[in-house]
Structures are given as C-alpha cells and as structure tokens.
Design a binder for these strands. Structure first.
Length: 590
DNA sequence: GCCGTTTTCGGCCCGACTGTTTTCAGTCG
C-alpha cells in the first residue's frame, strides 16, 4: 500500500509543471470522491490543464517571485499551493486526502455505472477498498442491500469489474480508426441514413481513444439501431433508448450511437466532438449572449420562449457566437478562444505540407527494406527527400552501425544519388545513440560527414532525472547533432517517459538552434501535443518523422500530423515542410 | 476554487438514460 515516502510527492528538484499539474489532478480525483463541490473539483482540473500548457517553468516563476494569479484559472489559493509544491515538493491537502482514502478505492470509479457517490457508499458502508473486495461483496449479495443499490446494480457492477481491471488501457487512435472505418462500411447497408460521422476524442485526433461516438441523421431510428446491433464483435448492448444506444465490443471498446434530426446535425456534432472543457466555454458564451446551446441546436432565450436559431452545421453553430469553425483537433480549451478573439487562428499543418521524412531504417540494421526500396516508396508517396538514419553501434540488438559500416553506407548512398534525378534528394543520416555515461556513440569526425544527425536514448532509460537530462543536454551541445529523436522515450500504454527535465531540454535546444522530433509512430507520438505546443511558443522547430522500419512504416505520418494539429502547429513550425535546399541552410553546421 | 461590460457574491453547460424510485439521484458524455 502506501510506502513510507508515499506522502512526499517528489523531490523539489523534480517539481516541474507536469508534476504540479499531476498533483492538482490527483486532488481533483480525490475531492470528487469525497463528494466535494463539483465546481471546486473543476477548478483543480482546470488549473492542472492550464499549467500543462504553460511555456514557462512555474518553478522559475516562483523563484523570481512572479504573480501566479496572472495565470488563467489560478487564484490566491492555488497560487499558494503552487508555491508549496515548487519549494517543498509537498502539498499538505493532498497528503491529508491520500491518508483518508485508500489507493484501491479510486479504482472503483473505473467501473461503468459507478461514480463518486456509489464508490463512497461502498467504501463507507461495506469498507470496500479494492476491486477484489467489491467482487466478493457482490457475490455474497451484500451490495444489493445498500440504499440506492439493487439486484441489477449489483449484477452490473460484477460485470463491470473486469472492464475496470483493463479500463486504464485506452485504444490507440490508429486502432480506433480501423474500427470506425469498419463500422462506417457496416452501417452503409442502412438505407434511410442521411449522415454518419464519428465525434468524440477520435474526431479530435487524440493519441488514444476511450470510446467511439457515432452520430447519425435518419428518419428511421429503429432501423439504424437494429443495424448497429448487428455489428460483428458486440458483446453487450449497454442501453437502448429513443435516440441513444450504447454497446460494448468484445475488445472492451464502448461505442455510443446518437440519432438526431437533420436540423440538429451540426449542433450534435459540435456537442459530441467536445472536448467537454471546450463546450463548457462555448455554452457559457451562449448564455451570456442570451442564447442556449444543446445537442439540438442554438436557441434564443426570451423568458420562457426558446426559438431555434441554428444547428444544421457546425459552422453556423459557432457563427452565432461570432466564432470561427475550429478544427476538431483544436477544441481542448487551451488557446483556441484567445486565437479566435485576436482573429489569429493558426492554419494547421496538413499531410500534404510535408516534403520529406528524416528518420527511417533499412536492412543495414533493423529495417525490412533496402535503401533503394525506401527511396522508391518515399517517391511514390510524393516526398522530395529522405534521410536514411540507421542505428549506431550501441544498439547491438539491431546490429547498429560502427564508424566503418556507416561510412560504407554513406558511400553507397553517394552511388545511389548519382542515379537519382534532381527532383529527389537522398540524405546521409544516422540515429546516433547518446551513451549511458554521456557523449555520442560515434566520433565527431564521422558525424561531421553526415547531412542529418539524430541523437537518441535507447539504453539507461531508467536513470535519474539529472543523469538522463545531462545526457540529452550534452547531445544538444554537440555541434553535429541536428535533432533529438523521440525525446521522452514514452510508449503509449506501455512505457513511461524518461525522467528527463524537458524544460531544460527546451531551453538548451533553443539556445543551440536544435530541432526536436515528433515521432509519428502511433505507439510513440513523442513529443506529445502539449510538448509540441510549448516548443511552438518557444520558437523551437519540430521535425515530424515516421521512424519507418519498412516501406509501409512510411504511412504512419498521418498520425504525427494529427498530433501536430492538436498542438496547433502550422507548416511554418515544422521543419520538414521546407524543401531540402532551404532546410539545409537553416541547419547550423560548423 | 475561480471569476467579474449582469463585479466581491452567486453563479459556474446541458440532456439522455438507468435503476430504484413513486418524483428523482446518479452516472455519463
């Protein structure tokens, strides 16, 4: 259970914005469980979200004695809590909450149909502290005796415990995309259907998707629901009402269907695309303007009377508030409303803007295709240049290249270049490891001969914060390194990021004029959207790369583009939208 | 707990569905 150091959130050294935001999120979860005022809970969540989006370090701001209440969503109270976290690494309130609520109890909230109220009752009345204990209580029929519970609730909980056990695993966007595609085809057999679109976090392009939301316009609701119920892989129908139906697939993925009238389609699409936080602001604005927005439309409110104003398209819903049609990826209540106010909505990057791919492997190390095959595949995809960046020798499992082999590969690249016409550029690159004790895996005089040098960490990922940060800062100091690949090392649902101090990395990258990678592999997506947004605010260029290990690996670029769009990146922020001739001048090589 | 061209208190987005209730609370998105 709670370790002796459990009360200490982190060493002061490790208190960056991310950890402060984590502390506030945890407070919000725990407060919600205690049945605290929901708006108070929201205040902590808002603060956490805003802190994650800040480009500057809160720790530095505290050191300089800056007024933290200038930050959106931070008042006197939370400012004090930030100071406490930044200077001592502790938050008394959080420690008290943790002491009051056992860790396992929070897992109860992951059961579908169990929220803070029911979970609190289970804990208080039956002393349940974990999913296992709850399972036993259900089997003994003790849960149905509680006030507000019954036989059906007990059965539902028993079923839901398995869901909860795996519920922290959100599906990769790329997997959700495949299911959405299959479902769209399946629904096509339904004749009276006018429109079908997927909303929710899937439409916003989030890196992982918790469930799918499907929106349909049709005059025959029953036919749509019947067809939906026949989708292969459905394990249970969770509910079916007059306009709404929910199912769960064998894989655990929940899919919600809403059928709406034509005049409400845009309002419903806007509503179900979210995010929740974005919609809270939109609805607040409507209210101030004497209107009301729900999933059926925009209504002018005059006393008791409500008149439909708009709702058929998303654009007209936003237009009633003088707002632009925000791309779905932007709807996270971060900066989009400020941008709209200033009339400066960034024109988000698109896949077609990319001209090159600067991270890929070949059969020389752990790739599946030859250099020529990668060149042909890249040209087929409309690219103008690529860099071959195989592993360096330290990555022995991938048969990483030593100095002799990499120089031989570059000689071969010279040979292949001679056969290429001028419309395509093949670059000599390397993904050079940053060694555990610091320093690069290949000598400078070798790196100096490359067109493009990626530096990355593959070993010693569990080093302390200061060790791993120093390694990466050292790589940024190397004059031949052009970019840091997958800078945090995280693998979604699988591996936490390194303990690296990204604020320090951003600072050094800016000073040295280096580039940071957004790795487009759907399991990596590293840097994440918030990191990329911060890089943009600091003026650090981003390179979006596939890290392809095969010809088909080049196709993951679109996942990277979605992530970049969520970060608000434009083509100007991304270095490989430029032609190589221009990019080359940008690189500061000695 | 935050916030203010309805300002320092009283708001804070809105509706569908379910289960356990007899008119509604809890959960979800």
């Amino acid at each position: 259970m709670s370790k002796p150091e459990g009360v200490e959130i982190s060493s002061v050294d490790g208190m960056n914005n991310e950890r402060i935001a984590d502390a506030f999120d945890e407070v919000a979860d725990l407060l919600e469980f205690t049945g605290s005022n929901p708006f108070r809970v929201r205040a902590y969540r808002n603060a956490g979200r805003n802190i994650r989006g800040l480009p500057q370090s809160l720790r530095d701001a505290v050191d300089r004695g800056e007024d933290l209440t200038q930050i959106e969503g931070i008042g006197d109270d939370l400012a004090g809590k930030i100071v406490s976290l930044a200077t001592s690494g502790r938050l008394e309130m959080l420690e008290e909450l943790r002491a009051r609520i056992p860790e396992g109890v929070m897992a109860l909230l992951r059961i579908p149909g169990v929220g803070p109220k029911k979970a609190a009752l289970l804990f208080k009345e039956l002393g349940i502290r974990s999913l296992d204990e709850l399972k036993t209580a259900c089997e003994q029929g003790r849960v149905r005796e509680l006030k507000g519970f019954g036989k059906k609730t007990e059965e539902g909980i028993l079923k839901g415990i398995d869901v909860a056990a795996q519920a922290n695993q959100r599906m990769f966007w790329s997997e959700a995309d495949e299911i959405a595609h299959a479902l769209r085809l399946h629904m096509r057999a339904c004749s009276p259907m006018e429109q079908l679109e997927f909303a929710g976090s899937y439409r916003r392009g989030k890196e992982t998707v918790g469930d799918l939301d499907m929106l349909v316009v049709s005059s025959d609701i029953a036919a749509v629901m019947d067809r939906f119920a026949a989708f292969p892989g459905i394990s249970t129908v969770i509910g079916r009402g007059e306009t709404k139906m929910s199912v769960r697939l064998d894989s655990g993925l929940q899919i919600d269907l809403r059928v709406v009238p034509r005049e409400s389609y845009g309002a419903a699409l806007q509503y179900f695309t979210g995010s929740k936080e974005h919609n809270v602001i939109v609805r607040g604005m409507a209210k101030q303007a004497g209107m009301k927005i729900n999933e059926y439309g925009v209504f002018r409110v005059e006393g008791e009377r409500e008149t439909y104003v708009a709702g058929a398209s998303e654009a007209e819903v936003y237009a009633t508030l003088g707002l632009p049609l925000f791309p779905p990826e932007m709807r996270e209540a971060r900066q989009e409303f400020d941008w709209a106010r200033q009339g400066e909505l960034p024109r988000l990057i698109e896949l077609a803007d990319l001209r090159g791919d600067l991270h890929m492997h070949t059969t020389a190390t752990d790739g599946a295709a030859s250099i020529e095959q990668m060149v042909a595949a890249a040209r087929q995809r409309g690219l103008e240049y690529i860099a071959i960046t195989d592993h360096s020798q330290r990555v022995s499992m991938a048969r990483g290249l030593d100095a002799t082999r990499v120089l031989a590969q570059w000689t071969e690249i010279d040979r292949i270049r001679r056969d290429l016409d001028e419309s395509f550029v093949l670059l000599k690159g390397i993904e050079c490891d940053i060694l555990e004790k610091g320093g690069m895996d290949l000598p400078d005089d070798v790196l100096a001969q490359a067109d493009w040098v990626l530096a990355s960490v593959h070993y010693g990922q569990r080093q302390s914060r200061s060790e791993i940060t120093e390694r990466i800062l050292g790589a940024l100091d190397n004059p031949y390194v052009t970019a840091i690949a997958h800078p945090t090392g995280r693998l979604l649902n699988q591996r936490e990021p390194y303990e690296v101090d990204l604020e320090a990395v951003f600072q050094r990258a800016k000073e040295r004029g280096k580039i940071l990678e957004l790795n487009a592999n759907p399991h990596r997506l590293d840097l994440n959207d918030l990191h990329c947004a911060t890089a943009r605010q600091l003026g650090i260029p981003i390179v979006i790369s596939t890290d392809a290990h095969s010809v088909n690996g080049l196709d993951v670029m679109r996942y990277g583009i979605l992530q970049a769009r969520r970060a608000g990146l434009t083509r100007e922020d991304v270095i490989n939208t430029r032609p190589w001739s221009e990019l080359r001048k940008f690189l500061r090589r000695p």
